[in-house]
Structures are given as C-alpha cells and as structure tokens.
Deep mutational scan, measured.
Amino acid sequence: GKMTGIVKWFNADKGFGFITPDDGSKDVFVHFSAIQNDGYKSLDEGQKVSFTIESGAKGPAAGNVTSL
C-alpha cells in the first residue's frame, strides 16, 4: 500500500536519492523515473512524499512517488 515519508536527499544530476519512511523502516532508494509529475522529475530534501515499495533489481525501491 501507500506509505509516506520525507526525502532524505536527492541528487538531481544523477537522478536518484533516498526517502526516509514515516514508519521508521529502512531508507528507500528512489529513482527519478518513479516520480509522478509532468514536469521536471526531481525531489527536494525534506519534502514530504507518498510512495509504494516496488522490488527492483537492486532491492526495494520507491514507486508512484507523489509530493504531498
């Protein structure tokens, strides 16, 4: 299901970062391709987001990332 969290950091040049889930679980990798907006796909440190957990090739990653 949907989770919420805070963006820990995001490197716009490399197109990835990490989200710290509100439930205290392990930080989740986020790739820019998972960001659900029409414009420039980037996130800001400290931004609140909702997301799902998808299993990627390198382990769990955030999917369906939407800013709240």
Rank of each mutant, 00 (worst) to 15 (best):
T66F: 06
A12S: 14
M3A: 09
T4F: 12
F16C: 04
F10S: 01
I6H: 11
V28N: 02
V28F: 04
Y40K: 14
F51L: 03
L68C: 06
T52R: 04
M3C: 05
I35F: 08
P21Y: 07
T66Q: 14
S50C: 07
K41V: 07
S50G: 06
V28G: 00
A34S: 12
E54F: 11
K8T: 07
V28W: 03
N37P: 08
D44P: 12
M3N: 09
G63S: 14
S55F: 11
K8C: 06
G17N: 00
D13H: 14
I19K: 00
D23T: 08
I19Y: 00
D13P: 09
G17D: 00
G56I: 05
G39V: 10
G17K: 00
G63Q: 13
S25Q: 10
Q36Y: 07
A61C: 06
G56D: 14
F10W: 13
F29D: 01
G5E: 00
P60H: 09
G59H: 07
I53E: 03
M3P: 05
V28I: 13
E54T: 09
E54L: 11
K41D: 07
L68R: 06
F18V: 05
G5W: 01
K14C: 05
L68S: 09
K26R: 13
K8E: 02
T4Q: 08
K2Q: 14
G39A: 09
E54I: 13
G39L: 12
A62D: 01
G24V: 03
T4E: 07
H31M: 04
A62G: 03
L68V: 12
D23G: 09
G5H: 00
L43F: 06
I53C: 04
I35T: 03
G59M: 06
T20F: 06
D22K: 06
K41T: 09
I35D: 02
M3G: 05
F10K: 01
Y40C: 09
S67G: 11
K26F: 10
K41G: 08
S42Q: 12
I53Y: 11
Q36G: 09
N37G: 15
T66H: 10
A57D: 13
K41H: 10
G59Y: 08
G63Y: 11
I6K: 12
G39S: 09
V30I: 08
S67E: 12
A61D: 04
K26V: 13
G1T: 10
T52K: 05
S25A: 11
D38L: 11
F18S: 03
F32R: 13
A12W: 11
Y40G: 10
P21T: 06
T4N: 08
D44T: 15
P21V: 05
K41M: 08
H31N: 03
A61Q: 15
V49F: 02
T66L: 10
D27G: 04
I19G: 00
T66Y: 08
D27E: 11
I35H: 03
H31Q: 04
Q36W: 08
L68D: 09
V49T: 02
D44N: 15
T66I: 13
G63R: 06
V28Y: 05
Y40T: 11
I6E: 06
D44A: 13
K8F: 04
A34P: 02
A12N: 12
D44G: 15
N37I: 15
A62I: 02
A34F: 04
T66K: 12
K48H: 15
V49S: 01
F18W: 10
N11Q: 07
D38R: 07
D44R: 13
S67N: 12
D23Y: 08
S42M: 13
K41E: 06
A57C: 06
D27V: 06
K8V: 06
G24Q: 08
I6D: 03
K26M: 12
G24A: 08
S33M: 09
D38M: 11
G39H: 07
T52D: 11
P21R: 04
N37M: 15
D13M: 14
E45V: 14
G17I: 01
N11Y: 09
G46H: 06
K8N: 06
F16G: 02
K41S: 09
M3Q: 11
G46L: 05
D44Q: 15
G24M: 08
K14G: 05
S33I: 05
T4W: 08
I35R: 02
T20G: 05
L43K: 01
F29C: 02
I19S: 00
V65H: 01
G15V: 02
S67M: 15
P21G: 03
S55G: 12
G39F: 07
A57S: 13
G46T: 03
K58C: 06
K58G: 13
G5A: 02
W9N: 03
G5K: 00
N37A: 14
I53M: 12
G59L: 06
D23P: 03
N37H: 14
E54V: 10
K58Y: 15
K14M: 11
H31S: 05
T66S: 11
V28H: 02
V49Q: 01
I19T: 01
T4V: 11
N64M: 12
A34G: 07
Y40M: 12
G17W: 01
K58R: 14
T4G: 05
N64Y: 10
I6Y: 13
G59W: 07
T66D: 07
W9S: 04
K26E: 11
T20D: 03
A12Y: 11
I35P: 02
F16H: 06
I6N: 06
W9K: 04
G24E: 05
Y40F: 11
G24K: 10
V65C: 03
L68E: 10
S42I: 14
Y40V: 11
G46M: 05
A57L: 13
A61H: 15
F18E: 03
T66R: 08
V28L: 13
S50D: 05
G59I: 05
K2S: 14
F16L: 05
G1R: 04
T52M: 08
F10T: 02
K48P: 11
Y40Q: 13
T66P: 01
P60D: 10
G39P: 10
E45Q: 14
L43M: 05
P60Q: 12
G17A: 01
V7W: 02
S33R: 11
I35N: 03
F16A: 02
A12R: 15
G59E: 04
Q36R: 06
S25V: 07
K26G: 12
N11G: 04
V7I: 08
E54Y: 11
V28R: 02
F51S: 00
N11D: 12
D38F: 10
T66C: 06
I6C: 08
W9F: 10
L43P: 02
G1V: 08
D22N: 11
S55A: 15
S67P: 14
G17L: 01
S42N: 09
F10C: 02
E45M: 15
P60C: 05
F18R: 03
A12K: 15
I19M: 02
K2N: 14
D22F: 09
L68P: 06
V7H: 00
F32L: 06
G1P: 08
D13Y: 15
V30E: 00
G5M: 00
G15I: 02
E45F: 12
I53S: 04
A62W: 01
D27Q: 07
G15R: 06
K2T: 15
S33T: 12
I6L: 09
K8I: 05
N37C: 07
S67L: 15
L68Q: 09
G1Y: 09
